[in-house]
C-alpha cells in the first residue's frame, strides 16, 4: 500500500486542528485551539511549551490515537477523518512509531516479544518477526538483552527497547512524548543519539520535551502555549 509516497507530500499537515474535552460537570476544556502545522518527511522537530499547554494532546492527534474535535489532519497526504477504526490501526501500525515517557512495555514479556508486537498486528510470520525484532534490538545496542523482561532492565534499557519497538516496523515518522523525561542525563543522551541516527536514516522525528538542551538539538522547534502554536523556528 502506498500512502502518497511522493517527496512533496508532508508527513503531517494540520489545518485548524482543535481538541476540547468535556469534563464531568459539563465544563469544556480547550486543550488545543486551532493549530496549523506542516511537518515534512525526514524532519527533526521538537515541540516545547509549559506543562498543560497541549503538547501531548497534539502528539496524540498526530499519532491518530485520538480524533480532533474540529480541523483537518492529513498523515502522508491521507485525511484521517476518512479512515475507520481498522484504517487508523493500519496507519498507526505501518506509518507511525511511538515512544512514550513511561516506556509502556508489556510486563512479564521478553524484550524480544515486546519489540515484535507491532509486527504481530501486521501479520508477519513468527520467525521473521523474531528475526526483525532481534535486529532492531541490536540496532539500539541491546543484542545481549533479548530475553530480559522490563523488570529486569534499567530505565535507559527499557526506553531503548521502546525505541526498538518503534523502529521495528520501519515507520515514516517517530513520535516521542518526553522520551528522556524519566531518564538520567547519560541514558537520555543515549536515547537522543538513537533518535538522531534514525532521523539521519530518513525517518521524521517529532519529540516533545521540557529539556532545553534536548530541544536545542532539533533543527526546528515549535513552541506551544495554551493550545496554540506560539512560535515556530
Amino acid at each position: 500500500m502506498s500512502l502518497g509516497d511522493g517527496r512533496g507530500t508532508p508527513a503531517f499537515e494540520a489545518i485548524g486542528l482543535a481538541r476540547s474535552y468535556r469534563l464531568d460537570g459539563g465544563v469544556m476544556v480547550d486543550a488545543l485551539r486551532g493549530v496549523d502545522l506542516r511537518i515534512e518527511q525526514g524532519e527533526f522537530v521538537a515541540i516545547v511549551g509549559p506543562s498543560g499547554s497541549g503538547k501531548s494532546t497534539l502528539m496524540h492527534l498526530l499519532g491518530c490515537l485520538d480524533r480532533p474535535t474540529s480541523g483537518t489532519l492529513r498523515v502522508n497526504g491521507v485525511d484521517v477523518a476518512t479512515l475507520d477504526d481498522s484504517g487508523l490501526a493500519d496507519l498507526r501500525n505501518r506509518t507511525i512509531g511511538f515512544v512514550f515517557q513511561s516506556f509502556h512495555l508489556l510486563a512479564r514479556t521478553s524484550a524480544l516479544d515486546n519489540v515484535a508486537l507491532p509486527l504481530v498486528y501486521r501479520g508477519v510470520p513468527r520467525a521473521e518477526r523474531r528475526e526483525r525484532a532481534r535486529r532492531a534490538l541490536e540496532a539500539v545496542g541491546l543484542g545481549h538483552r533479548l530475553t530480559h523482561r522490563p523488570s529486569q532492565m534499567s530505565g535507559g534499557e527499557q526506553q531503548r527497547v521502546a525505541v526498538a519497538r518503534a523502529l521495528v516496523g520501519d515507520p515514516r515518522v517517530l513520535l516521542a512524548d518526553e522520551p528522556t523525561g524519566n531518564l538520567d542525563t547519560r541514558n537520555g543522551e543515549e536515547v537522543m543519539g538513537l533518535l538522531e541516527r534514525l532521523n539521519k536514516g530518513g525517518v521524521a522525528v517529532v519529540l516533545v520535551t521540557h529539556d532545553a538542551e534536548v530541544a536545542a538539538r532539533a533543527r526546528r522547534r515549535i513552541h506551544v502555549r495554551d493550545g496554540r502554536i506560539e512560535r515556530d523556528a
Binding site: 477504526d85 490501526a89 501500525n93 511511538f98 507491532p118 498486528y121 519497538r165
Partner: peptide, 8 residues
C-alpha cells in the same frame, strides 16, 4: 496494543 496497530 492499539497504538501499535491492534484493531478493535
Amino acid at each position: 496494543r492499539k497504538a501499535l496497530g491492534a484493531r478493535g
